[in-house]
Structures are given as structure tokens and as C-alpha cells.
Design a protein around this nucleic acid. Structure first.
Lengths: 224, 224
DNA sequence: CGGGTATGTGACGGTTTCATGACAAGGTGC
DNA sequence: GCACCTTGTCATGAAACCGTCACATACCCG
């Protein structure tokens, strides 16, 4: 259940949308007909669906209704028609957003992100960042390791959140000092000490860390 | 927590939006500045917020960020600017939708319905105010602990309701001062004292609270 | 293998944060 | 006016936290 499904009969437009979305970091794939799109969505559901309104066979409105009947998947209409009547009809049929062609890819991408964010915000009142058996709930000020809550200090918590916001990416000690401590300059060792204390609390064996790992000479990163 | 709040400095546009939304069956009200809108939203939150981008004082982008900081309320931007750059910036700041003026009321209404439908589709069906043996009935102004009614003062009650509206989420002392006392700035200690008094009344053992817990360095939260 | 650098970690004093009891000012009902 | 309740401020002490340092260990490179 990942990626974006583009249902659009015009080969050129479909292909360029898929490529543009891939450029933006989405896993995208296409369907040339509503029938094919619905089949794909049943078989291997995408996280979001883009639908054109004018399709051969089953048209866009009907396609939206059928998607909606099975699923809560976010649906975005991309259509050449900018008639209020069409927009209202598509939204009433179950679409979540409506863009008029030609679409700016940056806008489309931002709208897809907004839609995902909204989904998460509603589905889980306290969103979680999951790193294997390590679960971080920033809003709840709560961290659990294999289901057990761990008591972190404020600095440890902010440090962990900062690392968690960039999964797998190495952050230098200076970056962490700036973002967590809001120091413009500072002693790298300070970060070491707090990383150490954090490890004692969240790692099974702090001498062989699995999530909060050191990248010698560069900094620290948090991984699954 | 109902209705639509329209934040728009142009009196004519604001009024016509409010009237049009009321025609569509929404309870709508207006705010001429971001400051007033934010205050209203804190004091008596609307279900959805409409924001203009060009506002005197705090501008639309900053207004969106501040709304988002406190809440998950759906935000729709209504702006004269149809620049992709503005649209992306507004959505990134936390908006859910973006319409370009002049707006077709039917379209706006349909988009508001779509947003609400999405919210309902994902949200917890019962936003419960039951926290284990602690039950809060805001309408009745009644709180019971293990079946026994507890007499709370007005401040204690409002504090408890504010915490209960965000189950499991940490609220900072400053957030609580803004929302419960409507102080823009204030002394954190004041919150401590009232939390303490509230604990004496609703917790079995106030030195080992089970529901109203302190998150050191961050604030307080109410949990099951 | 040896010197140099980077990193892990325990200990310690100064500081911050929090819970709580006391109290005075204001409000309310009688 | 009086008794009572509510509210905000303050002082106090206990506990938690932070940053620094010293020293141990691990790693790299010649």
C-alpha cells in the first residue's frame, strides 16, 4: 500500500505525470482506463489515486464512486474541465481535491503531501515515528522501546526527535548543537555525552547500538 | 466546536463569504485580522478555518502556522494570488486546500464538505472523554471519579477540559495559559498550582498521578 | 606496532524544574 | 458585616537535569 496510481487515458499526459511524480520522490504507476485502474487498486492498492474525468468506458465520476465504495483512499481529480459544476460533481462523488490541467507538478506534489498529512492527523491523534522496536510520539512526549515506556529528559527527547526527523541521515555534532541546543557554536563533546545517555535508555546494549549509531568522523544517525 | 471561521481583512469579501456560507447551511463567523482569528479559534474553536493570505499585521502564512501549532483544524486558503509558489508555500505551512478568488461558493462548499468527509473517514468515531475511571461530561459540567462526582472550581474544570480535548498530547504551560486563562504571557507556576489542586481532587494518590501526568520540561498531559 | 585522534562513560557541582503549603485579595451568598 | 470559596503569588525544599571534566577505550594511519 504505497505510491500513487495515475488513471489517465492520454498516454503522453499519463507518462509525464508518472515521471514527474517519480521526480518528486513518489512511487508512481499508470492505468490507461478506469477498468484497469480499479483492478490495480483492488489488487495492489496505492496510497493515493489521481483520476482524469474524461475516460473511455467507465468515466471519471463513476470511477471515483467505485474507488470510494471500496476504500478511503485519497482521490485527486486532474481534469481539463474547469467548470464549477464538474468540480462540485467530482467532489460530491467522493474526490478529495480537483486540479485543472495543465497542472504545476510542484503544486500537485504539495497537495498530495497535504492530503497525506491530513490523513495521518486524523487517523492517529498522536502520530508515531517508528524505528523497529523504538517508537517515538513527539506530541505525547513519549518514547517506548519494545512496548516499554522510557523516561527521557527534555534534551534527550529533543535530540532523539531531531534525529528521527531525518531517518537514516547522518547529522553532524554541530548541526545537532544548532538544532537541539540552539547554540551557534559549541563543544562537540556535549553531544557525545547526551547521545551516550540516550543510548543507555533506548538501546538494548549501548555498546552495540542498533538504532542510534555513530558514523565516525561525521556524526550520528538514527535508523530502523 | 462548530461552524466556519473566515479570516479576511476586506469587510465586503468577508461579509459576503459569511453570508454565502450561511446560505449553504454552515454556521459562519468572521475575523478581520489574524490576531482576532487566532484568539477566536483558541477561545471557541471552529470546525474549519478560511484564511486570506494578505492580512495586515500577522500575515496569512504565519497565521496558518500558528493555527497548526495549536490544532489539527482543517484550513482552507482563499487568496487572490494564483502563483504556484504561493500555493505550495501555503500548503507547506499547513493549509489543506487553496482556492483562488473570486471563489464559486458552490465549489467552496463542496470542498469544505470533502474536507469534513475525509476527517470523519479517518477520525476516531467516539472522541471519548473517558479516561479510565475518570469521566468528564463537559455539557453537564460534571466530572466523576470511579462513579463518585467531584466538585471542581471553574478554572479546574476548564483546565481539565482543555487537557481532555487532546488525549495523550502534552500541552505546555504557555499553551494552557493561553487557552484556559486567555493570558498571552504568564507565569508557568500558576499552571502548576492549579494542576496540583486538580490532582488532589481527581487522582487517587496525587503523588503518583495516573491520568494527569507531568512531562518534565514539556508540560502536562491527560491520559487513560 | 605506536602515536594521535575520535568516541564512550562515570562522577560532580551548579542550576533548573516541580510540588506543595501558606497567605492575601477579591467575590458571593446570607 | 461575616463566613466561605476561589484565585493568584510567593517561598521552600526536594528531585531531576545539565554541562564540564577526566579518564578509558576504540579506531585510523603511517
Amino acid at each position: 500500500m504505497t505510491g500513487v496510481l495515475v488513471i489517465e487515458d492520454d498516454d503522453r499526459i499519463r507518462l509525464s505525470l508518472v515521471l514527474a511524480l517519480e521526480d518528486e520522490g513518489y512511487a508512481a504507476r499508470g492505468a490507461a482506463t478506469a477498468e484497469d485502474g480499479l483492478r490495480q487498486q483492488r489488487h495492489d492498492p496505492a496510497e493515493t489515486v489521481l483520476v482524469d474525468l474524461m475516460l473511455p468506458g467507465i468515466d471519471g465520476f463513476e470511477c471515483i464512486r467505485q474507488l470510494r465504495r471500496d476504500d478511503d483512499v485519497p482521490i485527486v481529480v486532474v481534469s481539463a474541465r474547469d467548470d464549477t459544476h464538474d468540480i462540485v460533481a467530482a467532489l460530491e462523488a467522493g474526490a478529495d481535491d480537483y486540479l485543472v490541467k495543465p497542472v504545476a507538478v510542484k503544486e500537485l506534489s504539495a497537495r498530495l503531501r497535504a492530503l497525506r498529512r491530513r490523513g495521518r492527523a486524523m487517523a492517529d491523534p498522536v502520530p508515531s515515528l517508528v524505528f523497529g522496536d523504538l517508537v517515538i510520539r513527539p506530541e505525547a512526549g513519549e518514547v517506548t522501546v519494545r512496548g516499554r515506556p522510557v523516561a527521557l529528559t527534555r534534551t534527550e527527547f529533543r535530540l532523539l526527535c531531531e534525529l528521527a526527523e531525518h531517518p537514516g541521515r547522518v547529522l553532524s555534532r554541530q548541526q545537532l548543537l544548532r538544532r537541539v541546543w540552539e547554540y551557534e557554536v559549541g563543544d562537540d563533546r556535549l553531544v557525545d555525552v547526551h547521545v551516550g545517555r540516550l543510548r543507555q535508555k533506548i538501546e538494548e546494549d549501548s555498546s552495540a547500538p542498533r538504532h542510534l549509531v555513530t558514523v565516525r568522523g561525521l556524526g550520528y544517525k538514527l535508523q530502523r
